[in-house]
């Protein structure tokens, strides 16, 4: 059993909102998001960074929040699935997942969409290999990935057509 340890003060921006918090050193980022900030759209599936259900963007980079300590995010900017839509309008990636039937139970979907977000923010014309590699760290047990890849293709097209702006 760990000895009682002093909490650590951190400051993070989550979905555009600044939060000053004090965290246990052992607290994981995903626990902070789900339990402290009640952002329950980020999920836990495997506890060991295989499945990517806990994927969020930390400073624009997709990370597995079950393998990041909360204090490691200090000073960082985080986007979770709840922060992807803008003023109630779905992001093209969200729309594409819906249109392509790219989800079933929806448990892995937030992570898959954020991995897609990372890919499409860098690559405008992804190849099929790019798409598959981008979600290699996201396990989906329902869809067999076929419609997820379709959704990613739809999203890439929509984002390219709108020149990166939300449509």
């Amino acid at each position: 059993m760990p000895e009682a340890v002093a909490k650590i003060g951190i400051k993070i921006i989550v979905n555009g909102k600044t939060c000053s918090l004090s965290v246990e050193p052992r607290q994981l980022l995903v626990e902070l998001l789900r339990e402290t900030l009640d952002l329950t759209g980020t999920h836990v599936g495997c506890d060991t960074s295989y499945c990517g259900a806990c994927t969020v963007l930390l400073n624009g980079k997709a990370v597995k929040s079950c393998t990041v300590f909360a204090f490691q995010a200090d000073g960082g900017e985080i986007t979770t699935v709840e922060g992807v839509e803008k003023s109630g309008n779905l992001h093209p990636i969200q729309k594409a997942f819906g249109e392509a039937y790219g989800l079933q139970c929806g448990y892995c979907t937030p992570g898959l969409m954020l991995s897609t977000f990372q890919l499409l923010s860098k690559t405008k014309d992804p190849t099929e290999k790019d798409l598959r590699k981008a979600i290699a760290g996201n396990t989906c047990r329902c869809t067999g990935y076929q419609n997820v890849l379709k959704a990613m293709t739809f999203a890439a097209k929509a984002m390219k057509e709108s020149n990166g702006h939300q449509v």
């Binding site: 759209g41 980020t42 709840e82 779905l90 997942f97 979907t109 937030p110």
Partner: peptide
């Protein structure tokens, strides 16, 4: 879809 895509499942 509406709730699941928005992290509101």
């Amino acid at each position: 879809e509406n709730r699941l895509l928005r992290g509101r499942g």
